Amino acid sequence: GALPANLDDMKVAELKQELKLRSLPVSGTKTELIERLRAYQDQ
């Protein structure tokens, strides 16, 4: 599914939920979580 547009405004817990939905690792800082989601979306 498409990512929420406001990733930077989301809480870390919400970002981790998005990562879990995509079976991605949820470790790292908020910035790393956002980068991981964006990289996944670009595939």
Rank of each mutant, 00 (worst) to 15 (best):
D9A: 14
D8R: 12
P25S: 07
T31S: 09
S27P: 09
V26R: 08
K16Y: 08
L37W: 03
D9N: 11
E35Q: 15
E32A: 09
Q17V: 06
D8M: 08
P25F: 00
S23M: 07
V26L: 14
N6P: 00
G1V: 03
Y40G: 14
V12D: 04
L37K: 03
E32Y: 01
T29G: 08
Q43G: 15
K30H: 06
E14T: 08
R36T: 08
L24T: 04
S23Y: 11
S27L: 03
E14W: 04
K11E: 12
K30F: 03
E35R: 10
D8N: 10
V12R: 07
L37T: 03
P25M: 03
E18F: 06
K20A: 11
L3Y: 15
L24V: 04
E35C: 12
L15R: 00
P4Q: 15
I34K: 10
S23F: 06
K20H: 04
V12G: 06
L19W: 00
K16P: 02
V12P: 03
R22K: 04
R36I: 01
L24R: 03
A2S: 14
A39I: 10
E32F: 11
L33C: 09
S23K: 13
L19F: 01
R36Q: 06
N6V: 08
L37Y: 05
L3V: 12
L7N: 00
Y40T: 12
A39N: 15
G1I: 15
M10D: 00
E18I: 00
D9C: 11
L15V: 09
K16S: 11
R22E: 07
T31L: 08
L24N: 00
A2D: 15
N6S: 07
E35T: 07
L37C: 03
K16Q: 14
D42N: 14
S23H: 13
P4W: 12
L19Q: 03
L21F: 07
L7V: 06
K11S: 10
R38L: 06
E14F: 05
Q17F: 06
L21D: 11
G28L: 00
Q17A: 11
E35S: 12
P4K: 13
K20N: 08
R22S: 02
T31N: 04
V26Y: 10
L21T: 12
R38G: 10
Y40R: 11
L7Q: 01
R36V: 04
Q41M: 12
K30R: 11
E32C: 07
D8G: 14
P25D: 06
Q41E: 15
T31I: 12
V12C: 06
L33R: 01
E35M: 05
P4L: 15
L19M: 13
E14R: 07
D42V: 12
A39C: 15
R38F: 01
L15I: 13
S23D: 12
T29R: 06
L15C: 00
D8P: 14
N6W: 01
A5F: 10
L33Q: 08
Q17D: 05
Y40M: 11
D42G: 10
A5G: 12
V26F: 10
K11I: 08
L37R: 03
N6A: 06
L3M: 10
L33N: 15
S27T: 06
P4C: 14
A2M: 15
A39S: 14
L15K: 02
G28P: 00
S23R: 10
L21N: 09
L19A: 10
Q43L: 02
Q41D: 15
T29L: 03
L19H: 00
T31K: 08
R36H: 02
D42H: 06
A5W: 01
I34W: 04
P25G: 07
L3Q: 04
L3R: 10
L33M: 12
K30L: 05
L33P: 03
L7F: 14
T31H: 08
D42I: 02
K16M: 13
D8W: 14
E14M: 11
L24W: 01
P4D: 14
V26C: 06
L21K: 13
D9R: 13
L24I: 03
Q43I: 11
L3N: 13
G28V: 00
I34L: 08
Y40Q: 07
A5C: 01
A2Q: 15
E14N: 07
R38C: 05
V12L: 13
R36C: 08
M10T: 02
T31R: 11
Y40H: 14
L19G: 02
Q17S: 10
L7D: 00
K30D: 02
N6F: 03
T31V: 10
K30G: 02
T31Y: 06
L19V: 05
A39T: 13
D9Q: 12
R22G: 02
E32I: 07
L19S: 05
Q17H: 00
T31G: 10
V26T: 13
T29D: 07
V12N: 01
R38S: 08
V12E: 12
R38T: 06
E14V: 08
K11G: 09
T29E: 11
A39R: 14
L24C: 03
A2C: 09
R22W: 02
K20T: 08
E35D: 12
E14D: 05
S23L: 10
K30A: 03
Q17W: 02
N6L: 08
I34C: 08
Y40V: 13
L3F: 14
G1E: 04
K30I: 07
M10C: 03
D9P: 03
G28T: 00
I34R: 08
Q41C: 12
R36N: 04
Q41Y: 04
E18P: 00
